[in-house]
Write a protein that binds this DNA or RNA. Structure first.
Lengths: 209, 209
DNA sequence: GATATTAGTTAGTGATCAATCGCTAACTAT
DNA sequence: ATAGTTAGCGATTGATCACTAACTAATATC
């Protein structure tokens, strides 16, 4: 007995399944047949909804973009101080990765980047937006005297985003052997503590200082 | 006119070509035919030296491992202070990536990880070794009073390795639009400056502090 | 209840790849 | 010189993919 659903519902199912399966198999190894099996369709059934496989990846990318943006705006509380907002942003991002672990793999997949320029730019834009959010918050907290004045807010953002990325990578290749959000907030405190204070930090010993 | 070389020389050539081509195409899209063309062999000629393609990847992994370890030991100067040794280590790692940009792609390739457990463990071991080197140096500089006492050396290592990883990713997806080693040492100074001093940093304002 | 629309199926195609096999020709040792 | 070894080639094969065309059946519309 053939189960028949609206195109809209099916499309959503297919995108969901892709997002889930891209995690275990990796975006490059994920075939239309595997996706079809997961959704309960035959393999050509996928192409009724996404004429080219690339169209499917674009839909997935759009979904990821929406998820990330929604996640960020949800984490933003204008009443909180800028440092706390950075904390919230990082925590939200790590929770999102934990709940949808395919996101980093999709975001950094060479397969998707090389084949579709628009996709590459969309992902680059997403990462830039996160960077900018953090950089702006860093600038605000610096103006409020909570952050050292001798540090470029962009550098703060680079280091914080790098922390998230490095942690996600380590989490992934270690087989997810630890709580991402917990470890992340611990590391973030260490990171932020180095930036604290309105004045310069004491000089570092060593040849380059 | 058929050019004939010793198996040893050919193997080395093939590994070199693979390492070079894996950068532009990505490890997953790199075919035996492409490698053969680059080396000047026919496609089946590759299999004379590496019966399975996976064998080739293992040889590449071994080569990468040797390169990284050699790079680290070369960067270590026992007469230098621990902080300077961290600087040297990071700089060396970034220079290696700059001269062989396929390394991150190979190290973090899902294709290689999922198909071969040994490879995955080898790569994980490499990253752990780098982590340990930095953590040990951080512990030594802490004992020497050059680093805050309230910071876990392991966390220092996590943040520094994360810095390198995040930077390498950004360098890669930005189309290599900046000097990796230069940007890296600048960021590292910012990072290290937050850890400087034998005492605790001033407390951070915010709910969690 | 007939008709049009459209989700889904069955069967198949062409392209791409890793891998195989039988053979040739270049080195090496006797 | 001769025999044995081995690097490399030409032709092919089987598997895996994304993708297509023709048909079928469920749902909506009138």
């Amino acid at each position: 007995m053939r189960v028949r659903k609206s195109a809209e519902a099916r499309k959503s199912e297919i995108v969901n399944a892709t997002l889930r399966l891209a995690d275990t198999l990796g975006p490059e190894r994920l075939t239309t047949e595997t996706i079809a099996d997961a959704v309960g369709l035959t393999q050509p059934g996928i192409f009724r909804h996404f004429p080219k496989k690339q169209d499917l990846w674009e839909a997935v990318a759009a979904r990821v973009g929406v998820m990330m943006e929604a996640n960020w705006t949800k984490a933003q509380d204008p009443r909180a101080g800028p440092i706390d907002q950075i904390r919230a942003l990082v925590a939200a991002q790590l929770r999102l990765i934990q709940s949808t672990p395919a996101i980093p793999a999709i975001l950094f997949s060479r397969e998707l980047h090389t084949k579709n320029k628009g996709l590459r730019e969309a992902f680059f834009g997403l990462l830039s937006r996160l960077h900018q959010l953090i950089a702006d918050l860093a600038a605000r907290s610096r103006d409020a005297g909570q952050l050292r004045r001798d540090i470029d807010p962009d550098d703060v953002a680079f280091l914080v985003v790098g922390l998230v990325q490095g942690l996600a990578v380590r989490w992934s290749i270690s087989g997810r052997g630890f709580d991402l959000a917990r470890e992340g907030s611990r590391l973030l405190e260490t990171q932020l503590s180095g930036f604290a204070g309105g004045d310069s930090a004491p000089p570092l010993k060593g040849s380059r200082t």
